[in-house]
Design a protein around this nucleic acid. Structure first.
Lengths: 243, 243
DNA sequence: CGAATTCTTGACTAGGTTCAACTCCGGTGG
DNA sequence: CCACCGGAGTTGAACCTAGTCAAGAATTCG
């Protein structure tokens, strides 16, 4: 169940045995949470950082009038609130978007480890900065693209990220999100998102069945529509140790 | 000219004399750049990280058809590309939005300093995570707010950030951005942004003269319209210090 | 004083929201 | 076994926000 995280960790060059071991030793056994469970509540100061092992969680900001924005969708292998370790108070809540499994690392352990291993600290820092890069990409998606393109971008990104941790292949993956959740991530109404889904179906770019399995039928065309360029995901890792 | 950065640095509790000194020693003298100058080009791997001393710079993503999105507006005291130190390749370019002064720290120096001072490393990490928090806030602004509210949010945020580094007071600040730039940051057309500016003027919420001086006439109403809550900026203000 | 930016205005169009109803499907209990 | 229920997805129509195009005013700069 820790597979995805290990894969991600081992991508970093020069990852020492001892630092890797120190980090893994701080991970407690998996804890399940039901759909909708609020793993971290907005404005609190968590004492743990949560590693996602299975399922999807979202960082959610709730507005007046009940509208909400999902500012990030996390997949297995992601630290969903590592930034809270450094920042303290969280400006959003973290919610299970379906059934999930997580492992919560105590901040005091992280402090001990990062005091000892500067290189590992930069790796963790790196992970939080990839999140930031995803946010920036999201800003251009929300700011400058229309609905079908936004959806295409999300699907390309999720496929790439899931593939990276071994949870997608042959253009197919389990989305594990419903249309309302996707709409909330893309800043669209559920109705309009649905119409965008159908637009992509009609153009034979994707399949998306009721069970939530998505298949990308024509990657090139979908990526073109999305103007998707995976550079920002930093899948070829360097870690600040360039000399 | 280093004032804003010093102010920000000294906000961190437990900042040691030696670590503070080590960081300041790595800052070269100011370099001027003209408006529009591309400080970092997209997809390159910079060997320096740039501290902004005067003016405004933007992180800009250019799309096909010439549209562009400004994913971040940086003010004096901000490290505009500290993330590049950890990430390596940049997924956007960094452009002077007006005349600016900067100081570029060599990555090798940063590496030396962060190897030595774990606490300082967390402070720098912190700075990059506040950027990320601003991005998340931007996502909800672009995703779920309409134009006048977006503009109101940007003005509240910029005022708060500039005030934090001593560059705004009495509700007044130098925006140093033109309407096209603001529109590119908010995901709006220049025409529609202009209409939003006029809407806020008509409601007596702001003044915004041709020289680029903005005055917030009614903070409470503007902040309400924007649903602005400064928590995400990670500043701790004593009450009444905000205006 | 003329040229170039920046801002402003009007008219029209396109994309997206809202509301309400309806379908599809899986689960549950009589 | 089937009727019912609820959640998720789908459809249509009216409305509205924002984009586009194009032209004109205001300001700055050479």
């Amino acid at each position: 169940m820790f597979e995805p995280f290990l894969r991600r960790l081992d991508r970093f060059p020069n990852m020492g045995r001892d630092e890797r071991q120190a980090l893994l030793a701080a991970l407690p056994p998996p804890t399940p949470s039901p759909p909708g469970h609020e793993i971290i509540r907005q404005f609190t100061e968590p004492r743990h950082s949560t590693l996602l092992l299975e399922g999807r969680v979202g960082r959610i900001v709730t507005l007046e009038r009940g509208a909400q924005q999902i500012t990030a969708i996390q997949v297995p292998g992601d630290f969903v609130d590592l930034h809270a370790f450094v920042l303290g108070r969280l400006d959003h809540s973290v919610v299970a978007l379906g059934p999930v499994q997580t492992s919560a690392v105590a901040h005091e352990d992280l402090r001990r480890i990062t005091d000892r291993y500067p290189h590992l600290t930069r790796c963790l820092w790196h992970l939080t900065l990839v999140d930031a890069a995803i946010h920036r990409q999201g800003l251009t998606v929300l700011g400058r693209r229309e609905a079908p393109s936004r959806l295409a971008h999300l699907l390309c990104e999720l496929y790439t990220r899931l593939h990276d941790v071994g949870l997608a292949r042959d253009g197919t993956f389990a989305l594990e999100l419903n249309q309302v959740q996707v709409a909330d991530a893309l800043g669209l109404s559920a109705v309009h998102l649905n119409r965008s889904v159908q637009a992509l179906r009609r153009r034979d770019l994707i399949r998306w069945d009721r069970a939530g399995t998505v298949e990308i039928l024509n990657w090139d065309e979908l990526a073109t529509l999305a103007e998707f360029d995976p550079t920002y995901l930093q899948l070829t890792y360097s870690d600040g140790d360039r000399r």
